[in-house]
Amino acid sequence: MTTTHDFSGRTLLITGAVGSIGRAVAERFFASGANCVVTDLDESAATALARDIDPGLTRVLPLAQDAAKPDDAARAAKAAVERFGAIDFVVTSAGLYRDALVAEMSDAEWRRSIDINLDGVFYTCRAAIPHMREGGSIVNIASMAGHRGSFAHAHYAAAKGAVLTFSRSLALELAPKIRVNAVSPGLIDGPMVQNLLQMNAGGARLIEQTPLKRLGRPDEIASVIAFLCSSDAGFMTGTSLHVNGGLHIAS
């Protein structure tokens, strides 16, 4: 992996770290020298990930965090500060992407999607902010679905759309000390999109509609997040960056 930034002495808190994008982000930030607090609903998977990246667990701290629970967010932020002193970067990567048509969607399905995809972002940011150092950066992972909608994912798309406006509002609140931006992945290779690809003739149609003619890779999201957290993006706040190979071209 080519890393272009030096994050040594700085600390990342990332939720949903076990997902393919979360993992790529943790790997990249670790390789750039950052301390990484990797949280996930699945504690044993978070621990396995941490040991993969850093067998001695010298710079990686795995934690259990249900994004939907405010107390879990507070606990994660506190543990991060106890271990590494402060938080510099927050990446909210925890997400839940399930298929359901609105006409058939249960209250519980709707609620769970909003809980994880939207409330979880609020809880994690709120818990981390008091512990963030000046010059820090928050990157919320939104989605192409938050811009253009998504068939059979209204709950997910609604939450992701809200994450975009939440991020802009938070950028106003935390400027000029902390920058806040969002990244909207398109179709990124990993378990999350497998169902979608199967529903679309193995993905051939979707890839055909993508100008770059392929799926994205998780490390291609991680590299954009690393850029946004770096001083190279020092004048960028309140933006949302699409990483979708051109599949969705709009403002």
Partner: peptide, 22 residues
């Protein structure tokens, strides 16, 4: 123009310090 943006295309990126948030 770097490899870090290899899947980024068709984007217009504000470098505006949050001004207007277009």
């Amino acid at each position: 123009t770097s490899d870090a943006a290899s899947f980024v295309t068709a984007q217009v990126i504000d470098v505006a310090g949050g001004w207007l948030m277009t």
